[in-house]
Design a protein around this nucleic acid. Sequence first.
DNA 1: ATGTAC
Length: 480
Amino acid sequence: MEIKKISDYIWEIPATEKEGMRVPARIYATEKLLHEMDSGVFEQITNVACLPGIQKYAYCMPDGHQGYGFPIGGVAAFSKEDGVISPGGIGFDINCGMRLIRTDLTVSEVLPRIRELVDLLFKTVPAGVGSKGLMKLSVEELKQVMIRGVDWCIESGFGWERDRERIEENGRISGADPSKVSEKAISRGISQLGTLGSGNHYLEVQIATPENIFDKSMAKALGIFENQAVIMVHCGSRGFGHQVGSDYLRIFDTAMKKYGIVVRDRELACAPFNSPEGQDYFKAMKCAANMAFANRQVIVHRLREVFSEVFRREPEDMGMDIVYDVAHNIAKIETHEVDGVEKELVVHRKGSTRCFGPGRAELPEIYRKTGQPVIIGGSMETGSYLLVGTEKAMSETFGSTMHGSGRTMSRAAAKKKVTGSEIKKKMEEEGIIVKSTSMTGLAEEAGFAYKNISEVVDTMEMAGVSRKVVRLKPIGNIKG
DNA sequence: ATGTAC
């Protein structure tokens, strides 16, 4: 496939490269990262470029790797009038996302208690495949979670009023309709609120060491200081969102025949955004997105309780505010400029993060000047990043950047190279206390199975799309 | 990612 170099960090596959491409594909990567990408990424991103109503470019971020239909690390915006919505462009784990909590605690206060913290967090936050929460919700309550997300949590005692504005969409996307969610999804979701899940989902205690703060004044504006302890939560909508995705993939299979949509890969199943099927999926997707925001909210409430127990102080007195909460797998209606005209678009981000620049109306007052905080999860061994969005992101990538490191190795390949207990031992030697429900899961998530997070983050920094604020080093990890 | 298959 012909790949044109646009700059040191942007590569383009022309629309002439494949029959049916409506727009070119653009890949953000260094030459090294580009060469490391699997060929499936190029096949998939050019398939996405063929979908009806796609605008400007089909994008792949530097953490891109092959996924279901669309690459993970993909961004695609479709016309609201004559474009489509596709579950493959959002991901099975709807609103899988990342939340960062700050504290007033320093490394010297937290380090002596880290084993105690990790043990208690592990006991308090259910993790692993099929994990069930400690809450008993009625169907009516789960429907309230679907409609009202974090608002339901705060009213039910799981959080603070001021948490709301520090979450994308205030933790509640309007237009969610539980009547569009199957009984099966409800029965799977009913016991899953407040649970971490498995795979790459985790809860991590991290440190902002002085050498890792890249922009001191920006860090201060986001509530970050030298040698501070912070907590990162990575999880999504569990089996609930997964079921919503599966249900609508089947519905879209027949809907495509009805609307005469032909796709290059069955995994690209989609429906016109304005069709009844497309609208139903969007309403169900919002239910799962609100459930995921609520899931992270309940987990954060629990971890505030754990910190309170260990440090014998109220969470408010330890400054345990949310820095921000971002969605990594979602579609949203957003206004962006296309060919000099403001248009409402259906922006699909799958393994990609919104990174709006300063001034956007969607940002809360506290971040209107800084730009949107962006939380990037690395592998459990190598650390994570807090970034901010830029003006350039708005004109270049529909206000989007990467979401994490991206895998370089399959789970099966990682398990062949190392055992879970070897990884656990190695991490302890590196100063990271880890506790997991699954030893094979630990092996699958080994740092070497992922791209170098700094290289990925630097790519988007050099491209001018997102700016580094701080790198966060893990000291304790709870993994599903 | 996922009651790792209907």
